[in-house]
Design a protein around this nucleic acid. Sequence first.
DNA 1: ATTTTAAATGCAAATCATTCGCATAAGCTT
DNA 2: AAGCTTATGCGAATGATTTGCATTTAAAAT
Lengths: 143, 143
Amino acid sequence: MTHRDPKILNELESDLRAEGVRITRQRMAILSALAGSADHPTAEELLSRAREKDPSVSLATVYRTLSVLVESGTVLRNEFEGTGARFELADKPHHDHLIDLDTGDVIEFSSKRIEKLQEEIAEELGYDIVYHRLELYGRTKKT
Amino acid sequence: MTHRDPKILNELESDLRAEGVRITRQRMAILSALAGSADHPTAEELLSRAREKDPSVSLATVYRTLSVLVESGTVLRNEFEGTGARFELADKPHHDHLIDLDTGDVIEFSSKRIEKLQEEIAEELGYDIVYHRLELYGRTKKT
DNA sequence: ATTTTAAATGCAAATCATTCGCATAAGCTT
DNA sequence: AAGCTTATGCGAATGATTTGCATTTAAAAT
């Protein structure tokens, strides 16, 4: 039912333990809910998915856990237009997003060339890029 | 005191009238406050700047006016990280933004090549881009 | 210029997403 | 198993933005 090998969960858990992050029932429920998500869920969506594994999880804990996971670099927070923040596991190489305006679907893509150009632009302006955000909003081409 | 030729205000006004937008004292105060801003003010900042011209302006009206102006394509709304939305007059050619993480300064830039690559990527994914958002977050290079 | 009519305004209350305070519960160290 | 420290759930607080409503006002009609 999950779209990822469950092995990743154990890895994530030990990585987090190694960083001194306490592993609680709720945190594991949230983490596995996220690992089992093929989309980019909101905190609210993650809450209901996590509750399937542990009904005691509260929304506040989802937010607090996500903060911890984002701090540790385990999770990425995206703020697309419209909805609240959307989260994803940071276990894939860097990518940007294309959002389907009709369905809300989020498609991942990446472009070495765009990244390179961004660096060049920042360089010319005398800046070092710490991070960036690139989102394309569009609709499927009518053929 | 303004960084733009005031001529633009009259143009904006007649364009808006032509679109059937009612011109009120408050709307003019907000519009001219924005035209006189060299930065990317928030609604709150715009409120205090507009109040210098017309003290009767309220925050609700700033928001309502900005909505109208965004709808009409006169104003662009940006949602950078951290603060609330920031606005700018849509009288310049398209550009993206680099945000200085230390000062909050917003620098505009544009890259034909990046735009082109975005189009190509969307094309490959079967999409037409309606709009996009590209923001670089960084700090000045230590020399 | 005055009336008319639909739309804009100010104010305060309502939303929405997210955060926080606090008393209780539960990890992790020994 | 005991103790210390951090995490949790709950509900209240926050911050940005929106909305309902009674009142004012811009622009159209007279």
